[in-house]
Write a protein that binds this DNA or RNA. Structure first.
Length: 554
RNA sequence: UGCCCGAUAGUAUAAUGGCAGUACAACUGAUUUUGGUUCAGUUUGUCUUGGUUCGAAUCCAGGUCGGGCAACCA
């Protein structure tokens, strides 16, 4: 992909490294998710970054599952992560698991113990926390800090053998309890967990901590550029300390600021809560910022990649306007989505001077953005039609280019009509609109000489297919739910899903398949939901069209 | 009252000591058989104070504001 912008700081670093012949000019990145949740749009940024940088500089990218905490991890997540990355359009060079390296990491640990750089601590979690000190006060040495190498080795081997209970012992690096960097105050390397691991089963009862797994995995794979988010910056000295003491391949860590989106939450913990407490219908609910949610909503991989590219990368706090994501999907779908007509809130329109029982077949292009209209389909036209309730007003304001008493509009791909009268029920609701049509105004060979301002969509009543349409709005009422007072869940937008059960669709939509992308003319972009069947068609609204009329009338 | 990081238009991101630019958003107008699209145009910005310099968004010093760090999570 061409770079239309200046290089970002990571591109500069890598270009410089290649220029200097570092690692022989080789570039190997990695995407390292923990399989404890579904990927979201923030991960997509990281994926695009890691895979994109590698590709840009002729390198490769590994997929590595950071599965060092068996309690929270599961193969369900592994599968969804693999699927999402592929769907986004990226191929990894190798698929690895941190758990592949448990034997090696164990050997690394014994090596550090042998060199007097690590020790087994019998202190409890609370005691360790208390001895850690605070950011402004130094910590204290553990009473077990000066055990002999032999004793440490023996105890560590017995930890592995399962002789101790969870929490009874840990392995810690011996660094500096007075370091201003809290992560250097004898960080934990291993803890005891009698948990079943999704890959190694019950082979291990001790598991390495992030700090003793991530950098080691990077090094084992000879990752050249290990790119992570800013909160790991304070871990870097430790990352480097382990690599230096172990004398292994010098992978290097670089940090960037995670991307935040407004009107949603992005932490896995919060997303998990939304799922577990049924505020949404699963990880792939179309309102979720997950990759699977966006996919179900109708987003395309291209649009997400473009979004990541437009947003760019930097090292400062940010909140990206969800409007940019919407721009990206509109731009993509405008060029590719098939146009169809659907009436969401139908009222009957009767053309008084059109012969009863007669059906005229009209033609409508599939996509005006494509050369030749992208082919066409037949659209039945008859005396009784459905039109949008919003498209008729009893007392229309100025510049209302739709229907009202005496007003004229064009029906898309069909005729110009004039509103003659309307019928109300006892409650004052409009039930029928009566019009006459102008036979000479047929689309394509209009000889009427009449020009109208408005064009409306419609569906022939006798041919219409009833469908369900799910209209989505933002999940939260405030821009940044996590920054507000109290529980983020109290800011959930209770109107984020509006189900329309009686929409009327063009009969051609009977053939809609999951994955198909449509523009319902004048309404927005839609795609069949995963649960849609030929018996019951369900469409999700991906995003509305821009609507300057609605905006002007707010 | 410790250590680390950051601050450019409403949002995001460039400018690497030399004309503050781009995208989205907003606003005008033109085109339009989607109030869509497209096209043309407009508005809006270097956190602050000092210093170095012919010249500072950029370098230096102080301040302000924001974020991160004290999980047997990653």
């Amino acid at each position: 992909m061409d770079i239309q912008r200046g290089p970002n700081f990571l591109e500069e670093i890598i270009a410089e490294d290649i220029k200097n012949g570092k690692h022989g000019g080789r570039v190997l990145t990695r995407f390292p998710p923990e399989p404890n949740g579904y990927l979201h749009i923030g991960h997509a940024t990281s994926i695009c970054l890691n895979f994109g940088l590698a590709k840009q500089f002729g390198g490769k990218t590994n997929l590595r599952f950071d599965d060092t905490n068996p309690v929270t991890e599961d193969t369900e997540y592994v599968d969804s992560i693999r699927n999402d990355i592929k769907w986004l359009g990226f191929e990894w060079a190798n698929e690895f698991y941190a758990s592949d390296y448990f034997d090696t990491m164990y050997a690394f640990a014994e090596k550090l113990i042998s060199e007097g750089l690590a020790y087994v601590d019998d202190s409890s979690a609370e005691e360790i926390a208390a001895m850690k000190g605070t950011p402004t006060e130094p910590g204290k040495h553990s009473p077990f800090r000066d055990r002999s190498v032999e004793e440490n080795l023996d105890l560590f081997r017995r930890m592995r053998a399962g002789e101790f209970k969870e929490g009874e012992k840990t392995l810690r690096a011996k660094i500096d309890m007075a370091s201003p960097n809290m992560h250097l105050r004898d960080p934990l390397m291993y803890r005891i967990k009698f948990a079943h691991h999704h890959r190694t089963g019950d082979k291990w009862c001790i598991y390495p901590m992030y700090d003793f797994a991530h950098g080691q995995s990077d090094s084992i794979e000879e990752i050249t550029h290990s790119i992570c988010t800013l909160e790991f910056e304070v871990h870097k000295p430790l990352y480097n300390w382990f690599i230096e003491k172990l004398g292994i391949f010098p992978s290097q860590q670089y940090e960037f600021a995670r991307r935040n989106l407004n009107y949603t939450v992005m932490s896995k913990r919060k997303l998990l809560q939304l799922v577990n407490e049924k505020h949404v219908n699963g990880w792939d609910d179309p309102r979720m910022p997950t990759v699977s949610g966006l996919r179900r909503r109708g987003y395309t991989p291209e649009s997400i990649r473009h979004f990541c590219d437009l947003v760019g990368i930097a090292r400062r706090e940010n909140v990206i306007d969800v409007g940019l994501l919407e721009f990206c999907i509109r731009e993509d779908l405008n060029k590719s989505a098939t146009r169809r007509m659907v009436v969401l809130d139908p009222i009957k329109l009767i053309i008084d001077n059109f012969e009863e029982g007669k059906v005229e077949m009209l033609h409508g292009e599939n996509n005006p953005e494509v050369e030749g209209g992208g082919g066409s389909r037949e659209i039945p036209f008859s005396r009784e039609l459905w039109i949008e309730r919003d498209d008729f007003m009893e007392e229309p304001p100025k510049k209302f280019f739709r229907l009202g008493p005496g007003l004229m509009v064009r029906l898309k791909h069909a005729y110009i009509i004039k509103c003659e009268s309307f019928v109300k029920d006892a409650d004052g609701n409009i039930t029928e609109v009566h019009c006459t049509y102008i036979p000479e105004s047929r689309s394509g060979n209009d000889t009427s000489g009449i020009n109208v301002k408005g064009t409306m969509h419609f569906v022939s009543a006798s041919h219409a297919v009833p469908v369900q349409v799910n209209l989505y709005d933002r999940l939260f009422k405030v821009e940044n739910p996590s920054a507000e007072e109290g529980d983020f869940k109290s800011y959930i937008n209770e109107n984020s899903l509006h189900v329309v059960t009686n929409a009327m669709a063009e009969h051609d939509l009977n053939n809609a398949q999951v994955g198909d992308k449509y523009q319902f003319i004048r309404l927005g972009y839609f795609t069949p939901d995963l649960d849609s069947t030929s018996e019951k068609l369900i469409f999700n609204r991906t995003v509305t069209l821009k609507d300057s009329w609605a905006k002007a009338n707010k």
